[in-house]
Design a protein around this nucleic acid. Structure first.
Length: 597
RNA sequence: GCUGGCGUAGCUCAGGGGUAGAGCAACUGCCUUGUAAGCAGUGGGUCAGGGGUUCAAAUCCUCUCGCCAGCGCCA
């Protein structure tokens, strides 16, 4: 991971700690103006730090009570005054010791603490009007350069992000170069709120949460369709690439977790229970149980690679404050797989997984990005093993023609890995998939071997991979990505047949039966309601295709086809509709195509 | 887990010491409906749960649970 703006801000060393490009500079300056406004309204607060972040900025203050929304409005008003006054940002440099004295006199203890940690003789300060802050800069020339900003929210945050430190009050804001940019950003925030999968999950009857099982969804019939279709897709793709599927126990004796090291390192996240005097745990990961499948038989070099997939249901005892809809749950299902292979097969196997990753995300119009994490400071195995493994990952990425970043030193202690993120339609990034090379952990801890061509036992390499990550989180992401308007192959209801009145109900039933016999998820809405009412409901439910049938359609063997977008295609022959639908679903096409072929 | 906020009908929300309300949804009837809400009527709540204050608690106090935002952690 690249060093964040916040990290640089805190370190405060070197000459260009803060991002000097225009937008971060503007945001950083806006955070100073906000701090100035806060000090004006609340003279007793102490200032901590206020960096630019993605899409905006924040500033942390030591203050007993939280800021209220009314406070934010007042602060914004004062900020507008400061901007109108067009105060210049003035830089001066001081010996560090002098700066410490200065901030100590002003009672700014957090600044003193920062200064004491800085490895530099001279530090810089920036002043605008009556407010001066320890700051690397750069800044815009004067406060009048700030055109479009808005304060968004406030909440608690620990000093230096450590929960043992005091809680500060943080105010988040955003700033842009033009009002149009700001408006567009605020629209994006609004749109994200509208698409919130927790809201859509309720409105579309996909899933519910209940306090009898916090952090675990109850899948409703329509949401379960999504789960089943994703599973079916994953199975088809993996079957075609030589995977075999296994299923291993969920409730597993503690002794396995002691062997795998989870008991020592992961215990606080594990649910345990006692059975006949023995301690068991719900599995938080699939890898240790999967090794039993490997060890079930004596493996030959000819048996490898062994690609074992598992839709593993996992439980992790996440802290209560972290649970968030489907994005963070305590029970989830991973589309997991472990590939056991010989060292000489690593590159080809990784390349195969990368191919599968691209195949998966393309179907959802999600844009993947790849980050290669290499050997950390503390690692198991030999440098030669690591060099070979990293070379295999580089080569596999290049063989797929993929651009990627390198995060040096960010690999797991047992092997390098490729982290895969996706960007959704609102430009938000999600980290979901990983491909981890395991040189030593599983093979050594569980004494995995294969008989090589020379008759000697050798250690296989294990590749851990998940592509959806978890079905729960992935469904949350695509629900927001598609705003609930799923591609037809995923849509819980693919078509709804709407007779104009009771007079056409016989033909409507015929149409409906025809679709159901073609294995389509079709519904008949022959309720005693106006057509407009039933169309509105189908559209709110994001049903891809509405088929209106009346006397005209019954006579001609057609349906009047309406898309959920509101587009009306008019009369289309029923035969053609059924054929087009079948094709669109079989090919997992993202867009609506029926009646256009 | 921590800080702050919140929890009233299936959903969205009003009511803030005097015995429970609206809209949508549901149900029943009328209407026979042609591309985003036809009309009328009916039913529905241990006000998250426990304890307390009070003649009286949805309302005040307290604890527990859950939800939301953020911190930290993560698939």
């Amino acid at each position: 991971m690249a060093e964040s703006e916040e990290d640089r801000h805190l370190k405060f060393s070197g000459t260009s700690d803060c991002d000097p490009s225009p937008l971060p500079t503007l945001r950083h300056s806006t955070s100073h103006v906000m701090a100035q406004a806060v000090k004006r309204l609340f003279p007793d607060v102490k200032v901590a730090i206020g960096p630019a972040i993605d899409d905006g900025f924040y500033y942390d203050f030591a203050k007993l009570e939280a800021f209220t929304p009314q406070d934010l409005e007042k602060i914004e008003a004062v900020m507008r005054d400061i901007i109108k006054a067009d105060l210049p940002f003035e830089r001066r440099e001081l010996p560090r010791a002098e700066a410490i004295t200065l901030f100590r006199q002003r009672g700014e203890t957090f600044k003193v603490e920062i200064l004491e940690g800085i490895d530099a003789d001279t530090v810089s300060l920036y002043r605008q009007g009556d407010f001066e802050d320890l700051c690397r800069g750069p800044h815009v020339p004067s406060t009048g350069h700030i055109k479009a900003f808005k304060l968004l929210s406030s909440s608690g945050a620990y000093w230096r992000g450590d929960e043992r430190n005091p809680m500060l009050q943080r105010i988040y804001g955003t700033a842009w170069q033009t009002q149009e940019d700001l408006d567009r950003y605020l629209w994006r925030l609004e749109e994200a709120k509208k698409r919130d999968h927790r809201k859509l999950g309720r409105e579309l009857d996909l899933f519910v949460f209940h306090d009898v099982s916090p952090g675990a969804p109850f899948w409703l019939p329509k949401g379960m369709v999504l789960v089943r279709e994703l599973e079916r897709f994953a199975r088809e793709a993996q079957d075609a690439r030589g995977y075999t599927e296994i299923s291993t126990p969920i409730l597993v004796n503690k002794k396995l977790w002691e062997q795998s090291g989870h008991w020592e390192h992961y215990r606080t996240n594990m649910f345990t229970l006692e059975v006949e005097g023995q301690l068991y745990s719900l599995k938080p990961m699939n890898c240790p149980p999967s090794t039993f499948v490997y060890r079930h038989a004596l493996r030959s070099y000819r048996d490898l690679p062994l690609r074992l997939s598992e839709m593993g249901r996992l439980h992790r005892n996440e802290r209560s404050g972290t649970l968030t809809g489907l994005f963070r749950v305590r029970q989830f299902t991973q589309d997991d797989a472990h590939i056991y292979c010989r060292p000489d097969q690593m590159q080809e196997e990784i390349a195969g997984v990368l191919g599968l990753v691209r195949e998966f995300y393309k179907v959802f119009n999600l844009e993947p990005s790849f980050r290669l994490a290499t050997r950390p400071e503390n690692y198991l195995g030999t440098p030669a093993q690591w060099d070979a493994a990293e070379a295999a990952l580089h080569a596999a990425l290049e063989a797929n023609g993929l651009a990627y970043e390198v995060n040096a030193g960010e690999g797991a202690f047992y092997g390098p890995k490729i982290d895969i993120g996706v960007q959704d339609v609102l430009g938000r990034d999600w980290q979901i998939a990983t491909i981890q090379l395991d040189l030593t952990m599983l093979p050594e801890l569980f004494d995995l071997t294969y008989v090589d061509s020379d008759g000697q036992p050798k250690r296989p390499v294990a590749i851990h991979r998940a592509i959806f990550g978890s079905f729960e989180r992935f469904i949350g992401i695509i629900t927001e990505h598609f705003a609930g308007a799923f591609p037809t192959w995923l849509a819980p209801v693919q078509a709804r047949v709407l007779p104009v009145s009771e007079k056409s109900s016989a033909y409507a039933r015929t149409v409906h039966r025809r679709l159901v016999e073609a294995r389509l998820r079709a519904e008949l809405d022959d309720r005693n309601e106006k057509l407009g009412y039933r169309i509105r409901e189908a559209q709110l439910q994001k049903v891809p295709y509405m088929m209106v049938v009346g006397e005209r359609e019954a006579q001609n063997g057609t349906v009047s086809l309406r898309y959920r977008t509101g587009e009306d295609l008019g009369a289309v022959a029923l035969d053609r509709v059924a054929a087009d639908l079948g094709h669109e679903i079989a090919s997992r096409t993202v867009t609506l195509t029926v009646g256009r072929s």
